[in-house]
Structures are given as C-alpha cells and as structure tokens.
Design a protein around this nucleic acid. Structure first.
Lengths: 335, 335
DNA sequence: TTGTAGGCGTTATCAA
DNA sequence: TTGATAACGCCTACAA
C-alpha cells in the first residue's frame, strides 16, 4: 500500500493539491463535480487527511482531555461517558488521564499537553492542599480548562459543581429525623473542596437541631482500602455512633464490610447515607441511601461549556455552575 | 505571552534550532552544558515541544486508542484503567472511544483515526454479526489493532481473551452440584464471540451430567434495561427455572430486580451465577456468585502486546492470549 | 559538538 | 473555480 496523500490524489486526478484539500472542507469554493470526483476517488483509496499535518497547520487538534483522580470509580466513569458523548457529537476526540491522586502526575500531564496536544481540558483535581501553582504557568487562553467536582477554589476557572452543601444538609437532617444523634462524618479531606462543602452542610444541619458537633465523630480516611477498613472498624467499636454519613462512596462500602465484620446490623445498629453514584445501590444489603450526583450530566455540562469556550462563544452566566444532587432514601437509613 | 518555539529559544540562546531540538531528545550528540542551559531556559518559559509538529515529522503520535462498546460498565472501565496505566508508563497517551454498540460508530471512528491520529488501537468490538469488513481497508501495519474480550473471529489479529468456555463450564457444574436441573442461560447473542463460548461451556456441562439442553431455557436479551426486565420476568414466571446463569453482568442485575418484583427468594427459589467484575458483589443482597474476569490485567496485557508491536518487537507466542477467570461462589448460588 | 537546509502533509493567501 | 507557494514547528541527514 503505497503512501497516499493529497499530492498523489491530485496527480491521479490531474488537479492541484489545493483543490484536493478543498474537497475535504465544508464550505470552500470548489466545483461540486470536482469535489465529488475527488471524494469518490479518495474513498476508494480509503484516504483520510493526516491529523498531524492538519493540526499543525490549523493549530488545533479537535481533541479534549478529561483528567480524573481515578478511573475505578463509577462516578468519574459516568462523567467521562457524558463528556465523551458530548465531545463526540461535536466532532471532538477524548483523551483520558488518571492522576492516581498524585499532583505530580497531574502537573506533568497538564504541562505535557499544554503545547497543542489538546484544545481544552476537563479536570477534577487531586487536592487543594497540594501545590498546584503550576496552573499559573499554563496559558488558559490557548488551552482552556474547566473544573468539575473537585476543584481548586483559588484558581479562577469555570467550575461545574453540585449542591454539596445543600444535599449534605438534607442527608444529615434525614438521619436526625431517623432519631440519630451521634452521626459520624467520614471524609478524605475535610478542609478542602467537596470534603469541606459537605462537612459544612453536615455541621449546619446538626447545629440547626441543636446537636453538638463533635470533633471525635469526624473520621479522616485515606485512599487506601485496607487503612480505611481499620480506621472505621476502630472508630465504630470505640465511638459507637448511631449513624454514618459518608462523603465518598467507597467509605460507605468499607463501612458495610466493617459492619458485617463486627456483626452490626444496618440500619438497626447503624444507619448509613453516602454520596454515591452506584447504579445498583438498591441491590445492596441493605439498599443504600444515597446522595446521588448527576454524574453524566456533569460530564455533558462540563464538555458543553468547554466546547463553547473553544468556539470563542461567550459562556453564559456565572463561572460556577451548580447542578442538583438527589437524596434517595433506601433501607440503610430507615427507622 | 508571545509564541515560543525552538526558533525563539535558539535566538535567545544564540544557538541554532537544531541544537535546541536536540536538547529534548534522549540520546543525541549535544554538549551536556548546552543541553542543561537550553532545558533550564525552556523550563522557565514553560515550553514543551509541539506534539503535532513532532508527530508529523516522526510519523507517530505516542497515543493509543481504546475502543469499547460502552463506558458505563465496570468491566470495561477496569480494562481501560489497566491499559491507560500501562500506556502511561511507556509514555503513551490514551484516547477513549465508546461505540455505543453501534458498528457504524465503530467503523467511523477507526477509519477516522487510521491516518496517524493514533499509533495503535485496543478494541472490544460491537458484534460479529455486524458487517465489519471495513477492517480490511485498514492498514494494520501502520496502525496495529489488538482485540480483547469481544472479538471478530474471522479477522486475523492478536486477541486477548479469557477462558470463557472453561469458566462457564465450571459455573454451570457448580449450579448442578447445588442440585439445580433447570438452569437458564441469559445471553445477548449466543451465536458469536463471548456469548457463544460461554454457551458452549454451559451446554457441555449440562451434557456431561446428562441434563438435556433445553432451547426454552436460553433467554435472548438485549441492551435495553427495560426490555430485559420484561423478558426475564416473563421467562421466570413461565418457565420457573431453578437457576440462572447470566453471561453478562447486567442480566444478573435485572434478574435480581425481577426476583424482588416477583417475591422470589435468591438462592432458595432461584440460584444465580453471573459473569461480573463488580468489586462489591459481596455486598449485594444476597452476595452474588460471579465468574470474574481479570479486567485490569486484560487491559494491561492488551496494552503490553500493542506496545510491543509498536516497537516492532516480535510478539511472543500465539495470536491468542487467554487469561484465567475466577469462579467466586457466594450466597446467591448456594444450597 | 553545532549549524544548515529540506521536508513531514496540510491549509491559506494570493494570483490567474 | 483552480493553481502555485508559503507557512505550521519540528527532526535529521549532512556538512562544518
């Protein structure tokens, strides 16, 4: 299969390469007959324009990147799905990158793609307490970024969020209504981003009902499954809370395992509500009450905004878009 | 921020652009001092070589594509995770594409990237009964493809598979051991690829134990959740099988929902085993017995093979690599 | 070790 | 409507 490009096509058809090139562009001055001749011939040869040549010439790649802390998480996957779908419809390809919760990988990736590899980026960041000053060196005009879910508050970039405060407040209030008073809050990082917002909702709900906010009921977890299991086990044995509000899905799963280990009955001995996008939460034993974020929609919305920026359209409204989560009450939190 | 490229750097440092270019290559004849001068300066400016220029020049993109039927499926996500990880380690980026079980999208995507967009492809295909002759027009020397899981048997391409026949055989035998005789087989397409292999294992296990293989216990499902729910409900009510072997995870979930709807007790009234990569299968009610494929490993292995091909290294062994699945028995299939 | 120069495959400008 | 030509930014003979 000899190399085939616009030049060889031009030769074969007795045209110039400019004409051939024009045949592949939507609105260009070209005789419809010439165009169809070219397209027919090119099609026979299965020719496609070379991406790299076009990208180099046009200074754009028709590709966006989606950066997430981890891939093995339904929530992020659904977001990617939404983003990929929206991007696809607009003719964009999607590059995926998992930072593995490591800010160095995040920086390295963003920097490495910052010279034209992608036209724009959707990102859920590693963590605000990390040094993320590298972002100041990125030319955001050239490669716009849109944050979603986990964001750097101090960076002035459009953010797609969910109403974490409000839904945490409601979830906590729901547990209070279920007669819980010693409600634990399981979190990875209560000082920043989502961990913080969700904490505030939890705290304010307690305060509204005159329940003291006890530091010893805030459980700081990690990203290690084994560690969390031990942490939570130790905690449940010692503090004997009557409810657990998990700010992140996987902490709820760990809690389920610990309860099974300790012989605790959910919801009799311990009620649970968790942020979770698990589609089969209803099939768990017992069915898990969840605050479910509109994951796919987050992905779509983030992609939509990014694509607008790429088209240099004004992005409507504020730099912060807040989508609503849903509190779905199932047996794990019922009386 | 004015444009910055090797030329501007060269000027600033009183060097030629070739020297600057060399500074970014691993093994090139360049004075270490010159190199570090250049790198330091470039780093200050946050310069990265332009991907598209290098790619065009070098005719490679350091990017692979992963093509899957759907993204909202733990199994594929884990595979992607494995592939992305392996690719990342080798300095490759990962492009994701979901075909939405539509062979036209599959063809369109593969064709569109076939001229240099990516160096190679990992793909789990839409379905063998679809017309996939487009692959004959792809230059597999230029852009190698590795299949995984769902493959086109008639295309001569390296395939990463799991021991579907064997594990289906075992799963079925396990149900027989649990005193089941009317074992249903839930499948999307029993004629092809994985659906077929799994069917054969199921069939042969029955035959080995002198249990007749009944066509009316083979349930053909679709990709629509609602349809499957009705199909399975109708089936369970009419045929009253004592066990279900689901060749695909989501069919097991549907079965769970149907049982709950019909008031059937699992495993008392109906035992279930399913192909599933759900990490929290143990938390379901009841815990689901699974045939679990080594998803992440599939992704890693597929990427590893592809990367070898890209380096023009000989790929060892056969064109078919078979990984082992694990039968994990939980309560859903116990006496 | 460094510099010169040509070309990777396109697209855009300008002229015909 | 079509053709000639000059970029896009980089890499690599080859020469110095």
């Amino acid at each position: 299969m000899s190399k085939i490009d616009i030049i060889s096509i031009a030769k074969a058809l007795n045209l110039s390469k400019s004409t051939v090139s024009r045949a592949f562009k939507e609105n260009s001055d070209i005789n419809p007959n010439t165009r169809s001749r070219i397209l027919a011939y090119a099609n026979d040869l299965n020719y496609r324009p070379n991406h790299y040549a076009s990208n180099l010439r046009e200074q754009k790649s028709k590709t966006i990147a989606v950066v997430v802390p981890e891939l093995s998480n339904n929530y992020f996957t659904q977001i990617i799905e939404g983003a990929e779908q929206t991007a696809k419809e607009a003719g964009y390809h999607t590059l995926i990158f998992a930072t593995d919760d490591n800010v160095n990988k995040e920086r390295e990736f963003i920097t490495s793609i910052s010279n034209g590899k992608v036209d724009g980026v959707l990102m859920s960041v590693v963590g605000e307490r990390e040094d993320h000053s590298y972002l100041n060196n990125i030319d955001l005009e050239k490669m716009p970024i849109v944050f979603f879910d986990r964001v750097y508050d101090d960076i002035d970039i459009t953010k797609i969020l969910t109403d974490d405060y409000q839904s945490s407040f409601e979830a906590t209030e729901h547990l209070i209504d279920a007669n819980c008073r010693d409600i634990a809050y399981l979190v990875i990082d209560k000082e920043h981003s989502i961990g913080r917002e969700r904490y505030l909702g939890y705290r304010d709900a307690l305060q509204k009902h005159n329940i003291p906010v006890r530091e010893d009921l805030i459980v700081n977890c990690s990203n290690s499954y084994d560690e969390n299991f031990e942490t939570i086990k130790y905690f449940l044995k010692n503090k004997k809370p009557d409810a657990v509000f998990a700010s992140v899905e996987r902490l709820a799963f760990s809690t389920y395992y610990v309860c099974s280990d300790l012989g605790l009955n959910i919801p009799k001995d311990l009620k649970i509500v968790a942020f979770s996008s698990l589609q089969i939460a209803a099939l768990l034993s017992p069915p898990l009450s969840t605050v479910t974020q509109p994951a796919e929609q987050i992905g779509q919305e983030a992609a939509r905004i990014l694509l607008k920026k790429l088209k240099n359209e004004e992005v409507e409204g504020s730099k912060q878009i807040v989508l609503k989560s849903k509190l779905i009450i199932r047996r794990s939190s019922q009386l």
